[in-house]
Design a protein around this nucleic acid. Structure first.
Lengths: 239, 239
DNA sequence: CGGCAAATTGACACATCTCAAAGCCTGTGG
DNA sequence: CCACAGGCTTTGAGATGTGTCAATTTGCCG
């Protein structure tokens, strides 16, 4: 249940055996969701925080006129809703992109864990701070990268993040989002996203069919997208 | 020195006298910066975190081709660089928007403080999580709001944040950014920002001259921008 | 008064959106 | 095994939005 979360933590710092046990003993409720269902609702006051076990989820914000924007994508092992622990009232919802499973942990257990194991607490803090760093890179993508660079950048990000949790197979990985959903990630219209992906295919930068993305030459994609992995904090060191 | 930071914390939760003293006794180095100078550099490994005392700063990311995007604006009392405490390597720089002063605090002192006062530690965590919430709203601004709604939204945000730290006078506040800088906040060209601000003025939604913004009718601006203050976590409650 | 940074304007090229239709793929029922 | 429905992807065409370039105006400071 916590395997992929621990992989992510261990990628960034040493996790002691004792800390691992503390995490694994957290009381959890496991729930399954269908495409489009909300794991967490905008405006709600969650009493527990959720962790993605399988499948993809996204943070979503809705506007009065019905327009939607995703502000983050979350993958298995992401402790998505740790933010709620401090925020209390949700500023966004978390929705399933395709079928997914999540584990819910009561806030009280998390607070107790953090007070008894401060270093683990800092690793949870780190996780929310990495979310913030990813969001900053999305802002730069939206503001200053061309649509094709933007999508290329997103693909680089997903590739590296999925690699950490063991969900990349060679040059390929699974990513079930529809083009309508990608449009809500990159702030463009569906039609334009479609044309942009075709452009990337034509440039041989990637292939994207039936929910599978394949990257022929990762370095070329990185260079095309002006991608710099620093923001993912993939370095292991004392935190 | 810590007055405005404490105002921000007290707006979100009770801060005990003891906690207040712990904060005020933190060892600090105070430094002044000119317009455009970097308080923190992208790619660096800061050994201390900074707090804005006076003036405005922004988080900036640069692209190879020289394009710049601001991913956040910070005001007096913001503990801007708390992120560095967990990130270790900076994914962005922090630059001065006009003259400003900042206090720098060694990471070791912060870690010690957090371990001895976990509740204060959570309030610092909260501060980074609010930064993330603000960044999410910027993503939605960039992706799904029109330029005029975007700028109106930004103004609403600044108004409420500055009010918390006592920097609003009636319907007006000071905001020294140039239109070139605003362009890098909203991801548009300078020319387009200029025309958009003129549009807002023509609609009587705000006036913006010589670094002073005046809002005639805040509710109308809120409604125009589709602004919802939830993401600023302005509610006082146990965290 | 002269000089400089910031704000403003105009004209034109190009990017992106919207609307509407067609094509493609998959699962289901007959 | 085939026909069909529904969701997703792809295409075309015209309307708008936004960027760029280059010039002008404004406001402040020495």
């Amino acid at each position: 249940m916590f395997g992929r979360l621990l992989k992510q933590l261990e990628r960034r710092d040493r996790v002691s055996e004792e800390e691992r046990l503390l995490v694994e003993r957290l009381p959890v409720t496991r729930r399954s969701f269908q495409n489009g269902q909300e794991l967490v609702q905008e405006g709600s006051r969650p009493g527990e925080s959720c962790l993605v076990i399988s499948g993809f989820t996204a943070r979503a914000q809705l506007m009065r006129d019905g327009k939607r924007q995703f502000t983050a994508v979350h993958i298995p092992g992401d402790f998505v809703d740790l933010h709620a622990l401090m925020l209390k009232i949700m500023d966004h919802s978390v929705v399933a992109l395709g079928p997914c499973e999540a584990a819910f942990i009561p806030h009280a257990s998390l607070i107790a864990l953090i007070e008894s194991a401060p270093h683990l607490g800092r690793l949870f803090w780190l996780s929310t701070v990495i979310d913030a760093a990813i969001q900053r890179s999305w802002i730069t993508n939206l503001g200053r990268r061309s649509p094709s660079q933007h999508i290329a950048h997103l693909v680089c990000e997903l590739y590296l993040r999925l690699e950490v949790v063991g969900l990349v197979e060679g040059p390929s990985f699974n990513f079930s989002a529809t083009q309508t959903e990608v449009a809500d990630m990159v702030g463009l219209s569906l039609v334009h996203v479609n044309r942009t992906i075709q452009e990337l295919r034509a440039e041989q930068l990637l292939s994207w069919r039936n929910g599978t993305i394949t990257i022929n030459d990762f370095n070329r994609l990185v260079s095309y997208a002006d991608f710099d992995a620093t923001y993912l904090s993939l370095n292991k060191e004392p935190r």
